[in-house]
Amino acid sequence: MKLKNIITLSLMIASMYTFAQDNNGFTRLPNQVQYKIYTPNNGAKIKLNDVITFNFTQKTDKDSVLFSSFTAGRPVTIAVQPSQNITDLMYFFPLLSEKDSALVKIPADSLFADSSMQRPAFFPKGSTLQFVIRIDKVQSMEQAMAAQQRLMDSLKTAEVNTLNKYIADNKLNPTKTASGLMYIITQPSVKSKPVAGDTVLVNYTGRTLEGKVFDSSIESNAKQAGLEQPGRTYEPISLTLGEGQVIKGWEEGLLLLNEGSRSTFLIPSDLAYGPRGAGADIKPFSSLIFDIELVKVKPAKKAQTATPAAKPAATKKPAATKKPAAKKTTTPVKKAPVKK
């Protein structure tokens, strides 16, 4: 952290403590934000670059709840940085310790100082936006990164164990590639295989290891699974291999299939949607199953190479002749331009 930022933050915090409490026990900060710490603790105060996990309720001063992470079950984890605006609370966190609870009141007038912003009726002049905050955990950046890595490692281990159990329970014998992709040919074909740059038509149904169908290009499969895909045209999808249009497991697996063949792909998360997941059905670190039919391969058009023109045969230089005398009546004729 730059020395300038440290000095600025220190002066800001020091100035905060110079404000006396009002009759209701609230302290007012220089930016007119008021706060009250309900459960002060004696632990170390939060510092810049600390990673904090906290829950909060956001409400009006009439106790109308706008959002609550307590109810949603999703605490917030962020790194403390210099404040950018009055609602980010970064100027307030350094007053707290782990396990502290507090009430913060932000003047609504400061939120709508820009006249172009539309002001909701529930924030009249003189009202406040309030945050009820509980600091659940404080970590240094190094501690937070180490904890995140341990969590990812444990989730990846759990994924591998779950996939292996699925294979064992279903008595499967897939072929495994160096990348970790596993596949089973369910309908072989002797037709040609695609190569990068080819366009392929593919029918598919995708499902989780728990059996949840999340996507299908086949109408009967989608209806059987109760999958709602409004406006979906049920037909093979078209994609060009090697252009990153699909997940890595598909890119690799489709190159292994012959036109007209069918296969089941078992795709680990690092060849699919990884630690982020996708949508409500594909959770982070989820291995996926795809039933694939390679309907058609359309080879890429190869650019034609131009054939160089043959060089003209060498001719002897004509012998020098006497230049005829020019006739006065002769009109000079322009030669046609020679294309170079």
Score class of each variant (00 low, 15 high):
T8A: 07
S116Q: 13
A280W: 10
V295I: 03
K248A: 09
W250D: 02
L239N: 02
R134I: 14
E210G: 05
Q187K: 15
F265E: 01
L111P: 10
L3N: 14
P318E: 09
L271M: 05
S189W: 07
T315N: 13
V65T: 15
A314D: 00
S216W: 09
K339G: 02
T128Q: 07
M152Y: 10
P194F: 02
P188L: 08
A102H: 06
P40H: 06
T307V: 11
L111A: 07
S216H: 04
P337W: 07
K311R: 15
F214T: 04
R119D: 11
L288P: 04
D61T: 07
Q229I: 13
I7W: 08
T307N: 14
S269W: 01
A44I: 00
V33A: 08
T305L: 07
L9M: 11
K328V: 06
D270F: 14
L257P: 03
V33C: 09
D281G: 08
P30Q: 12
L29S: 10
Q245D: 10
P107W: 11
I237M: 05
A314N: 04
L151F: 13
G242H: 08
G253Y: 04
T307C: 09
K191P: 02
T305R: 08
T39R: 05
L111R: 11
T8W: 12
M145E: 15
T71S: 14
G274S: 07
M141S: 14
K335D: 00
T39G: 05
V295R: 04
F26L: 15
S261M: 12
F26I: 10
D50P: 01
T264A: 09
A121R: 13
F70G: 13
G73P: 03
P268Y: 08
I78F: 15
T240L: 02
T60P: 00
A319I: 04
L201D: 05
K328D: 02
K223V: 08
K47C: 14
V138W: 06
S101P: 01
A300P: 05
A79K: 15
A113L: 15
Y204R: 07
R74S: 14
A113T: 08
P308Q: 04
R207E: 13
K339T: 09
T186I: 05
F214H: 15
D153C: 03
N258R: 15
N203I: 03
I13T: 11
F214I: 02
F92R: 15
L288Y: 14
W250N: 04
A178W: 04
A300H: 02
L11H: 06
V202N: 06
A225F: 12
V333S: 07
S261G: 11
P94F: 12
L66Q: 13
L151V: 07
R150E: 05
D109Y: 10
D109V: 12
Y166P: 03
A14M: 07
R119H: 03
F92C: 00
L172T: 01
T8R: 13
A147R: 06
K125I: 10
A319T: 11
P230F: 00
N42I: 01
P40W: 05
L257H: 00
A108C: 00
S10I: 01
T321N: 15
M1C: 06
L201E: 08
P30T: 15
F67E: 12
F290C: 13
K248N: 11
T39P: 00
F214D: 03
R134N: 06
R150C: 01
K335W: 01
K301V: 06
K165V: 03
S64C: 08
P107D: 02
I218V: 03
